[in-house]
């Protein structure tokens, strides 16, 4: 029991020690080139830093079935502009899927047309 308490206390202490490091690391010491590019296209640094935290994009990807650890890795590779797009318009954005889905939907349309009686492909 005491051991357990010790462990918990140790972890808490370690966490407290690391806290300033984490908040310091939230933005790097210098302005990154990516941030400077975003600022030149009219974004504020605060806005860019919010995007770069990436939490909402990680959550979006995870909600769409991406493994949460993988979602974090994937979000780390995105630029501020891409993060902004994904955070706000992920459902409206093109997601290349391919020919097979097209065939599937075409088939569905044909069936509907057949049932409604517009076409007679399957029923000659």
């Amino acid at each position: 029991m005491i051991r357990k308490l010790e462990k918990v206390l140790c972890a808490a202490l370690l966490g407290l020690c690391l806290l300033p490091l984490i908040s310091f690391g939230a933005h790097a010491e210098i302005i990154s080139t990516q941030e400077a590019v975003a600022m030149e296209s009219g974004q504020s640094l605060a806005q860019v830093e919010t995007w770069l935290q990436r939490d909402d994009v990680v959550a979006e990807l995870a909600a769409l079935g991406v493994d949460p650890d993988l979602a974090r890795i994937r979000a780390e590779a995105l630029s501020p502009a891409e993060l902004d797009e994904l955070a706000h318009r992920i459902d409206e954005m093109p997601a290349g899927a391919g020919v097979i889905e097209v065939l599937g939907i075409t088939f569905l349309v044909l069936i509907i047309l057949e049932i409604v009686g517009v076409t007679n492909i399957f029923n000659r």
């Binding site: 990807l61 909600a63 769409l64 079935g65 991406v66 995105l78 891409e82 797009e85 994904l86 992920i90 954005m93 093109p94 997601a95 290349g96 899927a97 391919g98 889905e101």
Partner: peptide, 10 residues
């Protein structure tokens, strides 16, 4: 991305 059944440009 499974939920989109596709891949985003970004």
């Amino acid at each position: 991305t499974p939920g989109l059944r596709g891949s985003l440009q970004a």
